[in-house]
Amino acid sequence: MQIYLPIAEMSINWLLILGLGAGVGFMSGMFGVGGGFLMTPLLIFAGIPPAVAVGTQANQILASSVSGVMAHWRRGGVDFKMGSVLMAGGVAGSGAGMVLFDYLRSIGHVELLISLSYVLFLGTVGGLMLNESIRAILRARKGIVPPRRRHDDLAHRLPWKMRFRKSRLYISVIPPVAIGFFTGVLSAVMGVGGGFVMIPAMIYLLGMATNVVVGTSLFQIIFVTATVTLLHATTTYTVDVILALLLIAGGVVGAQFGARAGLKMKGEHLRVMLAAVVVAVCLGLAWGLVATPGELYFVSTLTDAE
């Protein structure tokens, strides 16, 4: 049951990795996010070196995004124009994130950076989502219909306006490029697709039509994770294809079952559950940062950093 991972240089139970892929795949299929924010901490917990977890994770999200975007594309759920604008920002952002990742690795703070980014973003996004979805459930119980958003915010006042037909928007390109860039940085540093930041940003900041949000997010994640995979392969040498293949195999199957389970549930109930998972992961990582460590030394054998 053990398989040797040539890049991580360790042997691991391949059933565990398949199961991890399937479990996270199930959740990502159900909630429509990549699941990277769950996978990276789980891989690190399973003993995979953090740098390898991040580098390999991007490659796995690439596969699940391709699988997911095909389904959305067939039913017209991808805004390619908006996706391209987000992607332009995303590719630039992942390049910038890589530079940051490499620099912090050279001074030995990359683990701290990964953990801190997770605590910060999972906490913020999870908290906001939890708040929003609980209100939505309460409103639904009382039978109140929420008022439609008025589009007079920043995205409409900035220059370089562009029409995005599928998203039903006529807004400046600056906010989508900025959101894309920011997600790209997160993607390189945390090894995530950034769906959990991108999707709320698209809904709440840009006001995109909700039926194209997930498909468009997946579409641009394909390009960002492909860039991140290539950058990690050439600068940190931390992409382990054997590990990636095992995760992909488990992930694609889990995602299909997750998507079916998700269809049977109400949107706001799904969001509450996702928010709860996000907040739980955040609290776990935060505890790891402040709790007194068992070992007072951190020893690294990674020699290819310089």
Partner: peptide, 17 residues
């Protein structure tokens, strides 16, 4: 190697879909 990893992932995702 990076390109191969990308192609592999895209092919796997495509096949699964």
């Amino acid at each position: 190697y990076g390109l191969a990893a990308i192609i592999l992932a895209v092919a796997a995702g495509w096949t699964a879909a």
